[in-house]
Design a protein around this nucleic acid. Structure first.
Length: 258
DNA sequence: ATGACTTGCGCGGCAAGA
């Protein structure tokens, strides 16, 4: 079975892209980020017509995450740890699959730029909450997948030029250390379990011909609990989606579990 | 080069993204 994650940068602008992807790749589960719409405006009918259930945590204008699944989803919205946080950046679902019951999270970690504003402490605090919640989830010893746009460049090999990103919230030492702390709880970064190749990217900026020059970064990740990692067969970055008309600036990342 | 796009909001240019 396949699980994919995709920051679509507005679900309403990308509905046709999404439906093509469901037709052509047909992942069993698809985690979406940056819906940029309320639950009411989510294109639920078109997605259900393709044979998917949809769990949606939307927000007007910004953020917004969802989980699509061929099997029914039991859903919880929101990352624990701060009742005052109203950003729609986290949704957690449980569903059946051909390898058994799964718990899947679709997350959109805060960008954090510029780092000298309140945005960066918010990012770090969000990461602390994610670490705390992930630690709780690991105790269940389930097949668990934390998928999404982490807004973290884990290593220098995950961007085209580390010097360009040196002072950026996506690459600052504190950011990378917290991401490593999350991994150290016992997660497997799916991509890094199958390859040590550098220069594999999931995002290319719209500006300055970043796609044409292959000036990308790898910030969309799937983290697997030990029970899920035992089933990992393959990781694919669906890079060709970046060459479509009016694409998202992110491409899907997809794992196969057998 | 304080740039370059794209989107939402809402109808005038910002804010946000990464």
């Amino acid at each position: 079975m396949q699980i994919a994650t995709w920051n679509v940068n507005s679900i309403r602008q990308r509905t046709d892209h999404l439906l093509r992807y469901l037709d052509e790749v047909a992942p069993d589960i698809l985690c979406l980020q940056e819906l940029k719409c309320t639950d009411d405006a989510f294109p639920r009918e078109a997605i259900e017509a393709k044979g998917y259930h949809a769990a949606v945590h939307g927000q007007k204008g910004f953020n917004g995450v969802a989980i699509l699944s061929k099997t029914p989803i039991e859903t919880k919205c929101g990352l624990p740890g701060d009742p005052g946080d109203e950003h729609a950046r986290f949704i957690e679902g449980v569903m059946d699959s051909d390898i058994g019951r799964l718990r899947v999270v679709s997350l959109y970690l805060p960008n954090g730029n510029p780092p000298d504003t309140e945005k960066y402490p918010y990012k770090l605090a969000w990461m602390d909450r994610l670490i705390a919640h992930a630690q709780e989830l690991l105790r269940c010893e389930e097949k668990l997948v934390l998928a999404g746009d982490y807004n973290v460049i884990p290593t220098p090999g995950d961007c085209f030029d580390p010097a360009v990103w040196a002072g950026d919230a996506l690459f600052l030492p504190q950011t990378r250390t917290k991401f490593q702390t999350l991994l150290n709880l016992g997660f497997t970064n799916a991509l890094r379990a199958v390859t040590d190749q550098i220069g594999l990217y999931t995002f290319w900026d719209y500006q300055a011909g970043a796609w044409q020059r292959n000036k990308g970064i790898c910030i969309d990740h799937l983290l697997l609990s030990p029970q899920a990692a035992d089933h990992l067969q393959e990781v694919v970055i669906d890079k060709e989606r970046r060459a479509e008309e009016k694409p998202s600036d992110h491409v899907p990342v997809r794992i196969r579990l057998t």
